[in-house]
Design a protein around this nucleic acid. Sequence first.
DNA 1: AGGGCTGTGTGCGGTGACGTACAGACAAGC
DNA 2: GCTTGTCTGTACGTCACCGCACACAGCCCT
Lengths: 273, 273
Amino acid sequence: MVNSASSPIDIGLATFCRLLDFSNVTKVAMSKSAAPAPGGTPVNNLISLLPRPDRDAIHALCEPTELKFGTVLCQPDDPIEHVYFPTDSFISLITPTGAAESLEVGLVGSEGIFGITLLLDVKTSPLLGLVQGGGRALRMRSSRFTKAARDNKAFRSTLNRYMYALTAQLAQTSACNRFHNLDTRMARWLLMTHDRAHRDTFLLTHQFLAYMLGVRRAGITEAAGRLQAMQLIRYTRGQLTVLDRDGLEAESCACYDAVRQTYSRHVGKLNGA
Amino acid sequence: MVNSASSPIDIGLATFCRLLDFSNVTKVAMSKSAAPAPGGTPVNNLISLLPRPDRDAIHALCEPTELKFGTVLCQPDDPIEHVYFPTDSFISLITPTGAAESLEVGLVGSEGIFGITLLLDVKTSPLLGLVQGGGRALRMRSSRFTKAARDNKAFRSTLNRYMYALTAQLAQTSACNRFHNLDTRMARWLLMTHDRAHRDTFLLTHQFLAYMLGVRRAGITEAAGRLQAMQLIRYTRGQLTVLDRDGLEAESCACYDAVRQTYSRHVGKLNGA
DNA sequence: AGGGCTGTGTGCGGTGACGTACAGACAAGC
DNA sequence: GCTTGTCTGTACGTCACCGCACACAGCCCT
């Protein structure tokens, strides 16, 4: 077992084949369990942005939970049972385009919430939610969430503005996927993941990354080789370490920064990272 | 002048170069003016889905307006002044990814509204709104819209559910742009436009289409040639006619249908088309 | 009639990613 | 030790689309 000191995020992958066929991936317990976050109690930014009384009220409606890598929180068009406020876990939003043609269109970490579409008078999610980084999250039952969003003005406003930022993220990702080449997109993806992982090393396979970026696995090997040659990352056997964050930012496209800026302008300051 | 009987939609294009540099495109009056819609008074579906009293109330807050091709209704990050309910016009939602790298990510016709993000406690739009099919629309001042959405429950609910459908559309388009080839995407685009145009013939240049689909112009010429060889469309000098709608559907990807279904499942029945 | 603009057709070399396939490197289990 | 499964590196032919460039066709203006 490798994760001694660095406590990498568990993007294992034995399960990955099953993931592709969309068979029952839920409740896959990885052999290497996700290690607890490094320092202090992690928080969710959307909640901590609230004024004190509201924050406490919302907290009271949540329960802490542990998300394991590979868990599908919600299949597209299925009812959302709980919403999740990740703290040190993070969740991929994936479009279902039949069979192997899936694609990550958004990423939700401690700066966001999974299940936001409940705000829109619809009980389902249009996207698949896949736990991509195991860790802790706060969760809330849908019924409570709907009620809280209706009754608590500060909460509702924060959520609305996050929905705005997420929409912008979707649109930006769309253009990014169209125009930018693999190296660039991979750099962006790593940065986004790095932000949400709150650590430098995580476990993920080429295959998984290929799935997220909608390219073939061999393509990832090549792109990773190039980033590695530039000394931006180290990548051995499923364990990836970000070596040079600034270098990655230089290599990635403006989309990364655009998404961050939209968030900080409309939702609020990002804590940490 | 060609448009005698068919009264094609005016997707002219002299203005197109200016459009690319994002200089002042607003208020471009095309020499060939958009002809009025064919039969009966057109309606906006979101409004007509409302119960009678609400519908009247919302109507009372709107004023009819004429949208001209090429008008930029809102630059990204600029405040939204009015929301628009197209009736026989339609509007492209375009992501701003610097310079020539722009891309249509959504389309709003009589089934929708432009400016929906006002629901989200943000006064701006993340996307550029470009009138792509000239025609009529109802417009409402932002302040009135915000108020009406707050006070009128049926209205708010309809808008919320439309926001959901639009989000799904964004995500689907994203995957479509990634996986599907040009012929397929072009077929889809034509179908979406056809739905919103409520007529078979419209004026649009290869250059404009290239801009929307994020490809080079020569690529459109080739793809159009193929669709034409299949007898699906006729395309001469900026005038495009849909000949075989079913054929286009067969040629396009499942994305087209998926978007439609999401709409009809969550927002309501599509009238006409 | 002639010139200029706009829109279309076509061609050519380049490239990024694709699909596929196979071999090596490492890890876990027997 | 050996086997088995997972993960990675690499290679090769193919393909869709790119960037660029140029010629031509229809239309408007003078």
